[in-house]
Every structure is written in structure tokens, then in C-alpha cells.
């Protein structure tokens, strides 16, 4: 059964058609790339999938539920995590607090329990402290736990954002230009991280990226869009030799 399916979704802003007739199906343990020129509508698609925008046409399914009208935080609880094109960390908070905030939905103690420091408070806080440190440990960031996240180097900030998205326990992870602003060395590390995440967390990944070495190197399937429409889909080799894609995006 597919994790995520869209049926002919489209998005219109006033008179502008940003995306039209976009259909996709992502199954378990897949790694799919979404590429296209700037302004093609890639991030708009991400925003529709994650509930930031409600599609003006078509339907989005997570599992078997239609999630068109769900809010972003509800969609997260259904197993869809994301990162942002321009990093959006909680800058003035420590690294570990960034992760702990993402565990919010797994906790249930009440305000009363919090204020009177009840048993449930201590138990749950201890649990997520351990879980958060474990997660940071997997990414070799346990020493940075108490650092302000804005003080981290750029590559680690990207990593922390992915880490935070993983803390929401997603089945499908959407990465919006994870390699933007990275040097070749950092991009290589990122590719290893992505491979590691798939292995360890058994998540499917849908990523937007302009770095062709990364996209062609790790994606199993690629979808190319231009002017809000799908112009090609297939394996990296098929995409590389597709005339339309070369004309619109890759260049000769």
C-alpha cells in the first residue's frame, strides 16, 4: 500500500496556476527526487503535501485518509516529517530543546502535572531526554546537546533539522533542498546521512534538490516538473537522456 498518494492536485494563487494536475505515489522504503527549474512549483507541492496550503484541486491521501483539509501539525502526527529550504531551527534554543519540542506529540502530561511536578512529568521528561540524546548520538551530535542551535556550523544545522524531523517519527520524510549552500564535502556527507537514515529509520524520502550529483546518485525515481506540470518521470538514467528535461532544466 502506498504511503502517500496524490490525485491530480493543483494550486491556484489568484490568477496564477502554480501547480496543476500533479499525481504521485510513494511506497514504503522509496527514495524519490523532485527536480525542476526555479519557480517550477516544487516547494508549493511540498506545502500542499504538508498542509501549509490546501490544494485548490484534487486529493492528497496519506495511507487511506484524505488530508486536504488537515492542518500541518495533524499531518505530522500521521507520519509526514519535513525540513525547509531555508533552515528553520528554533535558533535561540539549545540543540536538545529543538529535538524535545519535536517529541511534544508523544507526551501527554497535563499542565497540572507540569506545575506540580507530578510523577508523570518526571517519567515522560526523563524518557524524552534519553530518546533525544540517543537520536543526537546517532548523528554524532551528542556533545552539542546544550549548544544554542544558531551557534552550530551550517552543515550541522542542516543535520539538526533533519534530526528534528526524524524525532516526529515519520514514515515519509520530505527534504526541501537539503544540500543547498553546502560544499562538495558536506554534500557527500549528506548523501551518507540520507543513506543511513533510510537504513536505520526505514523511512521513505521525497527530496527536492538542485545538486544533480546528489539526485542522480541516490534517488531511485525522479520526477521533473516545469511550470507546475510534470514533464518527465523515471529512473535517473531515463531522466538524463530525456529530451524535454534537457531542454527545460539540465541543459546540453
Amino acid at each position: 500500500m502506498s504511503l502517500l498518494k496524490t490525485e491530480h492536485i493543483g494550486m491556484t494563487f489568484g490568477g496564477l496556476k502554480a501547480v496543476s494536475d500533479f499525481s504521485i505515489e510513494i511506497n514504503e522504503n522509496e527514495l524519490v527526487g523532485l527536480i525542476g527549474p526555479n519557480g517550477a512549483g516544487k516547494t508549493t507541492i511540498f506545502n500542499m503535501l504538508t498542509g501549509v496550503y490546501a490544494p485548490t484541486e484534487g486529493k492528497v491521501f496519506l495511507g487511506e485518509t484524505v488530508v486536504n483539509k488537515k492542518k500541518p501539525y495533524q499531518i505530522v502526527t500521521m507520519g509526514l516529517g519535513r525540513t525547509f529550504q531555508n533552515i528553520r531551527l528554533f535558533k535561540e534554543l539549545s540543540v536538545i530543546d529543538n529535538i524535545k519540542i519535536a517529541f511534544h506529540k508523544d507526551m501527554s502530561y497535563s499542565t497540572v502535572s507540569a506545575v506540580f511536578r507530578g510523577k508523570k512529568y518526571w517519567k515522560e521528561e526523563k524518557e524524552i531526554d534519553i530518546k533525544a540524546r540517543e537520536l543526537l548520538g546517532l548523528f554524532n551530535m551528542e556533545e552539542d546537546a546544550n549548544v544554542l542551535s544558531s551557534n552550530l556550523p551550517y552543515g550541522k544545522q542542516r543535520k539538526l533539522e533533519i534530526c528534528r524531523a526524524l524525532a516526529t517519527n515519520p514514515k515519509l520524510l520530505l527534504l526541501d533542498e537539503p544540500a543547498a549552500g553546502m560544499n562538495p564535502q558536506e554534500t557527500k556527507e549528506l548523501m551518507e546521512t540520507i543513506a543511513f537514515i533510510r537504513e536505520k529509520f526505514k523511512v521513505s524520502i521525497l527530496l527536492i534538490e538542485h545538486d544533480m550529483s546528489l539526485v542522480m546518485g541516490i534517488c531511485e525515481r525522479i520526477i521533473v516538473i516545469d511550470y507546475g506540470r510534470v514533464i518527465a518521470a523515471g529512473t535517473p538514467d531515463e531522466i538524463k537522456s530525456n529530451e524535454k528535461v534537457i531542454g527545460a532544466y539540465l541543459g546540453q
Binding site: 501539525y73 525547509f84 528553520r88 528554533f90 530543546d97 519535536a102 511534544h104 524531523a165
Partner: peptide, 17 residues
């Protein structure tokens, strides 16, 4: 606190902002 820092990010990690 997360809402003050970044409302969109807070919503995207499951906080009902």
C-alpha cells in the same frame, strides 16, 4: 517558546500553534 522562535517550524514538528 517554539512559537516565538518559528511558528511555521513549530507547526511542522507537531505543535498545535
Amino acid at each position: 517558546l517554539s512559537i516565538k522562535e518559528d511558528e511555521i517550524a513549530a507547526e511542522s514538528v507537531g505543535i498545535p500553534t
